[in-house]
Amino acid sequence: MSLILKLLFVCMFAFGQTTLLAKAPKIELNAILNNAVVAKINGQQLMLKLQQRSPQGYQVVEIQSDYAVFLIQGQRHKVKVGASIGSSTSAPINRVQINKNSGMYYVDGYINELGVRFLVDTGATLVAMNSQVAEQLGIDYRASGTQGVANTASGQVAAWRVQLNVVSVGNIRLSQVQAMVIEGAYPTSVLLGMSFLGQIKMQDSGNLLTLEQTF
């Protein structure tokens, strides 16, 4: 191989590597919590605390009320909540808007195709319900669930971790959602927790909460 061809080959290879490294990641900012974010980065759903570095090398270096700044491969990426970057094609969106009621967000939905009234709770790790509601929904939590304990205002009570076949709110529908069944009458409302909310986008404008599911 001549020296000129060798130089051309090296230049083409180096250019290809530079282009690959400069490719922008796909980031979807689903929710902003107190000191953390829920985001989908290059197809992976993650919860990242401020300044925490994920095993993939992703880091959140700034969190504001309506946006976060990610540091990925030495590049800073500012993303607004409910928005995404790195994709040039638009995707279909299912959207539900919920008005605040007495300081809370309540919304009608379905668990395993049976109607329930949800209270949106970003502080709940899982969708959660009391054992009375679970029985009404036909969930055999004692047989299918994993037993543990939950902390309530009355102290520790028995709880079971289960998997719900389908959870839906409006036209947003998710399958195989993790949930918690708590023995007794607490919580009084079915909590729509992060096992559902963490898979979609959320934007809270003060008195209106918008939920979005993209495909």
Rank of each mutant, 00 (worst) to 15 (best):
K80Q: 05
V81G: 08
V81H: 13
V81S: 12
G82N: 11
G82I: 14
A83H: 15
I85H: 03
G86Q: 05
S87C: 00
S88H: 08
S88Y: 11
T89H: 14
T89M: 10
T89I: 15
S90M: 10
S90K: 11
S90I: 11
S90T: 12
S90F: 08
S90A: 14
A91N: 06
A91P: 00
P92Y: 15
P92F: 15
R95A: 12
R95W: 10
V96R: 15
V96Q: 11
Q97L: 06
Q97M: 13
I98S: 06
N99L: 13
N99C: 04
K100M: 10
S102H: 14
G103W: 14
M104T: 09
M104A: 13
Y105D: 06
Y105W: 10
Y106E: 03
Y106R: 11
Y106Q: 04
V107A: 12
D108C: 10
G109E: 05
G109F: 08
Y110C: 07
N112H: 07
N112V: 06
E113H: 15
E113Q: 15
L114D: 04
G115Q: 14
G115T: 14
G115K: 15
G115D: 11
G115C: 08
V116C: 06
R117V: 03
F118Y: 11
F118P: 01
L119Y: 11
L119R: 15
L119K: 15
V120Q: 02
V120C: 00
V120G: 00
D121E: 11
D121L: 13
D121C: 12
D121S: 12
T122N: 12
A124S: 13
A124F: 10
T125A: 09
V127W: 13
M129Y: 05
M129T: 02
N130A: 01
Q136W: 09
L137P: 01
L137D: 01
L137K: 01
G138A: 00
G138P: 00
I139K: 01
I139M: 05
I139R: 01
I139W: 07
D140M: 01
D140V: 06
D140H: 10
Y141N: 01
Y141F: 14
Y141V: 07
R142L: 06
A143Y: 09
A143W: 11
A143I: 10
T146E: 09
Q147H: 04
G148D: 04
V149S: 09
N151K: 13
T152W: 04
T152A: 02
A153K: 08
A153C: 02
A153L: 07
S154L: 09
G155Y: 12
G155M: 09
Q156F: 13
V157M: 03
W160M: 04
R161V: 03
Q163I: 07
L164K: 08
N165R: 12
N165C: 02
V166K: 05
V166L: 05
V167R: 03
S168G: 00
V169C: 02
V169R: 06
V169T: 07
N171F: 03
